[in-house]
Design a protein around this nucleic acid. Structure first.
Length: 316
DNA sequence: AATGCTACCTGCAGGC
DNA sequence: TGCCTGCAGGTAGCAT
């Protein structure tokens, strides 16, 4: 599941490889992947544009194009990018491309046989393909079809990002902002961390890791946190995201980098999908529970469950 | 205004 | 072996 570190990592890879390239044409294999504008307009407008820059905003990947346009890509659950070298996309149907890669995958990429990654598998789920003038081909693959690709005028960035909150590494994500965002919120802290208007880019993995960092139980009511707890959580969010980027992202199921390789942050998580394993801090077995229809992982010793004391007094 | 629930999708694990 | 059920999770949109 790509969250901020995974998107950041991909953005850096794309910046180093496709900035300066010109899109000859795009192909769309699943129309609902295109969120804006209508598919015919998307195809017509993207052709001939030069990629001038690659940015990340929250979990959005933004590619600035010539003519004051930009592409917004949100990978949601299973979206991935794969960059194919020149020579494979020209005049080939996707099926031919798939067959070619399948039979000669050796020289194309370095690739861990133990991972069992199949290029055929990736190509089968190609939803949008950008073919560059130099013959390279950037694929957006997405088995679950939740991912979105949009093309926008530069002036519509706010609309494209739809109320996204502050970047965790920017000054906008200040302790004062975070404190204000928690104030008066009766919802549990886990769900609040997943709210992209509070802080942009945190998903299920890093929300659980940040709560472990701050020794907070996921069901704690947001408005029950002390100033010290808020400060520690604020620090924890930045810390776990930073570590995630340093480790090249967390590969749990579907996440792969631009060349089809897996990130290694999964070797560094403390609680996410670690239920039944001993806590790295105290040895207590990590537990899993469902909060708001999604899983939360925590150490029951380090992150004690809230009791009556966490309910604000009537006088407050 | 804040919160809760569901649709969107498909692969896969688990049960029988 | 094969079918069926449920789960995974980010976000929009709708209901409360």
């Amino acid at each position: 599941m790509p969250e901020l570190p995974e998107v950041e990592y991909t953005a850096r890879q794309l910046r180093a490889s496709v900035v300066g390239a010109t899109i000859r044409e795009a192909l769309v294999f699943w129309e609902r992947t295109i969120s804006h504008p209508a598919v015919p307009d998307f195809l017509a407008e993207v052709a001939g544009r030069r990629i001038e820059g690659v940015r990340r905003r929250g979990k959005f990947l933004l590619m600035d194009l010539s003519g004051d346009l930009f592409l917004s890509i949100h990978r949601r659950m299973t979206g991935n990018f794969l960059l194919l070298p020149a020579g494979w996309s020209l005049d080939m149907s996707l099926k031919d491309l798939d067959a070619a890669l399948w039979s000669t995958k050796g020289p194309l990429f370095t690739f861990d046989p133990a991972s069992g990654l199949s290029y055929s598998h990736e190509l089968r789920y190609c939803r949008v393909c950008f073919i560059f003038e130099d013959g390279r081909c950037l694929l957006f693959t997405d088995p679950r079809k939740f991912g979105k690709v949009g093309l926008w005028g530069r002036a519509l960035e706010q609309e494209a990002l739809h109320g996204l909150g502050p970047e965790p590494f920017s000054e906008d994500f200040s302790l004062a902002h975070f404190t204000a965002a928690l104030s008066g919120r009766r919802t549990n802290i886990k769900q609040l961390l997943l709210d992209q208007t509070v802080v942009a880019g945190v998903g299920n993995i890093y929300a659980d890791e940040a709560l472990f960092y701050a020794s907070l139980h996921p069901t704690r009511r947001a408005d029950s946190l002390s100033d010290a707890e808020i400060a520690l959580l604020h620090k924890g969010i930045v810390e776990v995201l930073t570590r995630g980027i340093e480790h090249g992202g967390t590969s749990f199921n579907d996440y792969r980098d631009l060349w089809g390789e897996a990130g290694e942050n999964f070797n560094h998580v403390h609680v996410y999908h670690q239920d039944g394993k001993p806590c790295s801090r105290c040895g207590t077995l990590i537990e899993r529970m469902v909060i708001g229809q999604r899983s939360a992982h925590f150490c029951p010793h380090c992150q004690p469950a809230p009791l009556l004391a966490t309910i604000p007094l009537a006088s407050e």
